[in-house]
């Protein structure tokens, strides 16, 4: 049993860093919990439960600001939840070592994505007939530009199967996999960045629920462990989103690059050596 005085601060830190970097708490929480001696499958199960809380909490604000596109969210959810069920089933079936390695690669991928992150401006493109039939369009008020931005999503036929893949990663590793979901909506479906990040946030909650229910049935959610972690992550995320405005983007990025690469090496090392 991991003592409360270790568990709670670690959860707060994970939620804080996750919110500050925009990558969600799970990606820090799971390596940290395994370092404290928690079994990786239990860590994954508890992390995905806490993802429901952080995603729903932040989604509630974005939805009320009318930035999130509910239709695009609901359409893509059909695919992510199936992926999450499959992913969680795989986690239950395999041994821990490949999980460490897969997690190490996801951390490496996030590190790379952060390193080469370019800020491509968003361009409106022509909509195909399938996306049009699916009513994947909307508008929101952009505060930075002081204007109403209208947009139409495209290539839903590519976005949907890719979202199934994002769901598998989420269910398998107990993370929101928000970065993957945002990438699909940005690059494939051509959504404005604000819409894709907030809509991805909404999808994450339901996707995490599908994964959580699989882990719950298999007795991997221990309320004694989950309670302080969920509360800690939510508190950390709450503070993290408010600090974000005060710290310069550059220092956040530097700090996060170091943490990500350290955790990636550590997880890969444990996966290869066998802990």
């Amino acid at each position: 049993m991991v003592p409360f005085y270790l568990l709670f601060p670690v959860a707060i830190l994970a939620g804080f860093v996750g919110a500050m970097s925009g990558m969600g708490g799970g990606i820090i929480l799971i390596p940290a919990l395994t370092l404290l001696g928690v079994d990786i499958k239990q860590a994954i199960a508890i992390s995905i439960l806490s993802v429901i809380a952080t995603s729903s909490g932040s989604a509630s604000a974005y939805v009320r600001d009318h930035i999130t596109n509910l239709k695009i969210g609901m359409f893509l959810e059909m695919f992510t939840i199936l992926g999450a069920l499959a992913g969680a089933a795989i986690t239950l079936a395999i041994s821990p070592r490949p999980l460490y390695i897969a997690f190490g690669f996801v951390l490496l991928g996030s590190w790379l994505a952060l390193l080469i992150a370019g800020h491509e401006s968003w361009h409106e493109g022509a909509q195909d007939s399938i996306s049009n039939w699916l009513e994947l369009e909307g508008s929101y008020f952009d505060q930075a530009q002081g204007a109403i931005i209208s947009y139409r999503a495209r290539r839903a036929y590519l976005g949907a199967p890719l979202m199934f893949g994002a769901g598998i990663i989420a269910g398998l590793l107990g993370i929101g996999a928000g970065a993957v979901k945002v990438l699909i909506q940005d690059l494939i479906m051509g959504l404005p960045p604000k819409v894709s990040t907030t809509t991805s946030n909404l999808i994450i909650g339901v996707t995490a629920l599908a994964g959580t229910s699989v882990y719950l049935v298999h007795g991997l959610i221990n309320p004694g462990l989950a309670a302080p972690v969920v509360v800690g992550v939510v508190v950390g995320a709450f503070v993290g989103t408010r600090v974000l405005v005060r710290i310069s983007n550059r220092s956040v990025r530097q700090f996060f690059l170091i943490i990500l690469i350290a955790l990636a090496v550590e997880m890969l090392f444990r996966g290869i050596r066998g802990s």
């Binding site: 049993m1 991991v2 709670f8 007795g219 959610i221 221990n222 309320p223 004694g224």
Partner: peptide
């Protein structure tokens, strides 16, 4: 006087 709970959930659905 203790914050840690050790409580196992034997597999059941929601």
């Amino acid at each position: 006087g203790q914050l840690s709970v050790s409580q196992k959930l034997a597999g059941m659905n929601l």
